[in-house]
Nucleic acid binder design. Structure first.
Length: 490
RNA sequence: CGGGGCGUAGCGCAGCCCGGUAGCGCAUCUGCUUUGGGAGCAGAGGGUCGCAGGUUCAAAUCCUGUCGCCCCGACCA
């Protein structure tokens, strides 16, 4: 095990923090609950963002940007929405500082006439704007996404998983009919599922949230849920069918082809830097980060080995065509020819940083026409001929990608249980954790009781439900139309 | 907001109980030797011990206050 990394078995929470620190993904900021995303972490986010952005555009969306500040009055317009976010808003009250004995103080004379809210999400300001954009059914649909930061004043934070400020994308669409909006909600959930599974190699369950877990202001919230290595679930993305709630609150109407004035139907959907936390907890191990090749900022690192200037030039010229062939194939390759660090140090460091493949080349390889190839996921090493090596790399990267997914899928399946009784339910949670299917009577009271007694929540009512048969609630014995998916969650 | 922990060199920490001129590892700089799994030797630089009071001849250490961060719980993506 790499030094400075606590083992998962000893303390999963500490392991997670150690990985982030040692892989240089992020660090705590001077401000409580905020983080500095370091270049390694940001490069990962940029790759995730690039793929998602491409997928959004393929489904007809355009990017726009709405302001960070929202008039306080906007938040009060949709009743459920206010209730959901009121307790975690940063409020701007003043606009100036003045010099004082302590350095600077807020200038009491600069109090704002209307206080501003730092967006916790942008529905309100966007729907206030959409009112101006929409008159006729010919103006619909509006399919807009924005990449932005948002602020939620959280009591307890964890790097990437829950920070006071985080980066995300929020899609906000407007439609003429309920059906079209519902289809959009489901379409974007599928986009998230595809992204999670095909790029992050993170298997997810799709489903609908219960009323108590629903987004504030939504009629329905759909989600992707993933199971982490420690048996806790992570909500990795949400897509909301907002009905006409925001259209009514912000008076957004359109004249339909039948001449009638109607309220617009809405959706919103988002994923955030929280996904990075999910990525870490899906694949990484006690040796460091493990990154899926499709998102890894560096896919292949080449470490040359030499003892003297002659060997250095021999090895580097031996490597040059390999590197060129990789670049020509679009492989993200990095050559680390620094002379102040030993090869062994580099091996360890790139393992900590999660680079999927490493090629090491020394004088012996240059002599024999070989190279040493090492996989991060399995940590297998092999000596391979350098001829044709570069051409095999893209296939190998894809093999690693699918191997990571399959391993995570198997872990998720093995971590998914079925509980017939409440006693069994509690036993599974305490002994194994993981996803637990169980019958529930569908009431918020019972849900709250289960949460209180077991810390587990209904993660979702899965769409593709293997236990879609009626039964009796494990707590109350009342009728239950189907089992739902429970877990303790982040 | 409750419980726990921590603020000492760029990073990670010891020293505090029992007061006496601030230490260790990593990193940095110089030189030589090294380079196939976190190199070795020799030397060097770097700290108002979170902050403010107090006790004392003397405070990183004892007392009081204060600020901040992290972790575990009540809320949430």
């Amino acid at each position: 095990m790499a030094k400075n990394i606590t083992s998962q078995e000893k303390d999963y929470s500490q392991w997670y923090l150690d990985i982030i620190r040692e892989a240089k993904l992020a660090q705590h900021s001077p401000v409580r609950g905020c983080m500095v995303i370091r270049p390694n972490g940001y490069a990962l986010w940029e790759n995730m963002k690039a793929e998602l952005d491409r997928m959004f555009k393929e489904t007809g969306h355009e990017n726009a940007y709405f302001p960070l500040f929202i008039p306080k009055s906007f938040l009060s317009k949709e009743a459920q929405h206010v209730e959901g976010f009121a307790k975690e808003c940063a409020v701007i009250t003043h606009s100036r500082l003045i010099n004082s004995d302590n350095g600077v103080d807020v200038d009491p004379d600069s109090r704002l006439e209307e206080e501003l809210i730092v967006r916790p999400t942008s529905e309100t300001i966007i729907w206030d704007t959409y009112r101006d954009w929409i008159q006729s059914y010919r103006d619909l649909p509006i399919l807009v996404n924005q990449w932005a930061n948002v602020v939620r004043w959280e009591m307890r934070t964890r790097l990437f998983l829950r920070t006071m400020e985080f980066l995300w994308q929020e899609g906000h669409t407007a439609h003429a009919t309920r059906q079209e909006a519902e289809e959009e909600t489901r379409r974007m959930l599928e986009v998230y599922k595809t992204f999670a599974q095909d790029f992050m190699a993170m298997p997810v369950i799709t489903g609908v949230k219960t009323e108590s877990e629903r987004f504030a202001g939504a009629e329905d919230t759909y989600c992707i849920e993933a199971l982490m290595q420690d048996g806790k679930a992570l909500q990795a993305g949400t897509s909301h069918f907002l009905g006409q709630n925001f259209a009514k609150a912000f008076n957004v109407t359109f004249q339909d082809s039948d001449g009638q004035l109607k309220h617009v139907w809405a959706t919103s959907w988002g994923v955030s830097t929280r996904l990075i936390g999910g990525l870490i907890m899906t694949h990484s191990d006690d040796h460091g980060l493990v990154l899926p090749p499709r998102l890894a900022p560096t896919q292949v690192v080449i470490v040359p080995i030499w003892k003297n200037e002659d060997e250095r030039s021999t090895v580097l010229s031996y490597i040059a065509p390999i590197r060129a062939a990789l670049l020509a194939q679009g492989v993200r390759v990095k050559l680390d020819d620094r002379d102040n660090l030993k090869p062994g140090w580099k091996f360890t460091q790139y393992e900590i940083e999660g680079v999927p493949l490493r090629i090491a080349v020394g004088p012996r390889d240059a002599q024999s026409g070989n190279a040493e190839l090492a996989r991060r996921d399995t940590r297998e090493k092999s000596i391979v001929p350098s001829a044709g090596l570069a051409q095999q790399i893209p296939g190998l990267l894809e093999e690693i990608q699918s191997s990571l997914f399959n391993k995570a899928l198997e872990r998720t399946q093995q971590g998914t249980h079925v509980a017939a009784t409440y006693q069994e339910f509690r036993q599974i949670l305490d002994e194994k954790g993981g996803f637990v299917y169980a019958h529930w009577d569908g009431t918020a009271e019972t849900e709250a009781q289960i949460k209180e007694e077991t810390k587990a929540t209904v993660r979702c009512i899965p769409f593709d439900n293997p236990h879609d048969t009626p039964g009796e609630c494990m707590v109350t014995g009342k009728p239950s139309p189907r089992m739902v998916l429970f877990a303790r969650a982040y």
